[in-house]
Design a protein around this nucleic acid. Sequence first.
DNA 1: CCTCCCCCTGCCCAAAAGTACAATGTGCCG
DNA 2: CGGCACATTGTACTTTTGGGCAGGGGGAGG
Lengths: 211, 211
Amino acid sequence: MKRLFLTPSTSARERWCEAFETVLVADHGVQLSSADSAAYSSLWLDLSTVDEARSLTLLKSALQAARPVVAMSATPDESQAFSLIKAGAHGYCHVEAAPEQLREIALVVEHGGLWMPPSLMQRFLALSTRVAVKRAPEWQQTEQLTERELMVGERVGQGASNREIAADLGVSERTVKAHLTAIFDKLGVRDRVQLALTMNNIEVPPQRAVQ
Amino acid sequence: MKRLFLTPSTSARERWCEAFETVLVADHGVQLSSADSAAYSSLWLDLSTVDEARSLTLLKSALQAARPVVAMSATPDESQAFSLIKAGAHGYCHVEAAPEQLREIALVVEHGGLWMPPSLMQRFLALSTRVAVKRAPEWQQTEQLTERELMVGERVGQGASNREIAADLGVSERTVKAHLTAIFDKLGVRDRVQLALTMNNIEVPPQRAVQ
DNA sequence: CCTCCCCCTGCCCAAAAGTACAATGTGCCG
DNA sequence: CGGCACATTGTACTTTTGGGCAGGGGGAGG
């Protein structure tokens, strides 16, 4: 199986060749067709000289090949790792990773796994602990909101006030309130705080009625 | 490499033997010593007849062997998957998974990867990344709250109203407000919505000043 | 003893949030 | 065309929130 490395430079080519028997190296600009994708089993993106926005763009186009993509960074960073993983990368590692490690990562991602450095993985799992993991039913709740309601809900989920939302959407504050009332009803929440949590997939524990 | 399967029954043993050359099967009750752990490369937990609480207990003891653990369920379920993964499992699959798939999973977890069914993986990533990824600064923030302030903050993070919090803590509503004012100041948030998000490790994007 | 910090609270006020009742306009569907 | 869902807004009212001003009590430490 061949591995395709996309990089602006070829400085690390040596290490890659050491890791895998067959390596293809191409420039970032290369156009990937689905025909090509049969030719390799995984795709490796060198993002060491690329800014965040462009990283995501490159990743998106790389993902179209329907092969697992491993993002490689020169300055591994939690925030970058998570945003790339979230965007669809199957792996995240240092661009200077040793051949042996590259082989491990290839094994993992080419068999449907997710790979990142152990410390990051740990942190990644720890971070998700506060997120509600229950029921698919309420997942649809967000779906039952109208387009406009969804916009309002999302802004509340970011901590915006009614006035700010109104300005954002170019409507009156009264309209925002109207949407909110509808949302509260549909999602079964009481106020904007509970809505904000719900919009972030956080379980809202039932509050004891007082008075 | 051997794989150790922990199961109350041996009904699936056949499939396991088909998947791997060497398979050890033992009861859930078996005690794992670190000496044993050298004998196998991964540990597979059959949780098909086990309730949630016991699942976590079994997983915890299995993890002590310092080998990757794959949890297998008869009724794969998002909630169960996530709680097991968070508790330290490296893989989650159906107990009836085909031999070929078992081999894939073994490859992944034994090389440091995380494996779960693709649909679950997608959902898992979608959920996880709503969470803020930089906490070092704000983590201390939570620490800089006094005991009482922390209690109030946590309740706000669960969507409680001032009145409810007051009742919970057995103080007046005015006191709750006083604590809140102090919290807003310390954490640099504007209102209870932003506080609720912050308490759940969710990044509060700066809002454009309007007016 | 004095000071600092934390906890608690009352009165009062302003802003924000949330609701009720009502109305207008638009586009889609039978 | 009439019904219906959606978006929009106004007036007015109630509730909740946030905070200024002022004060009391307690514990730790100089």
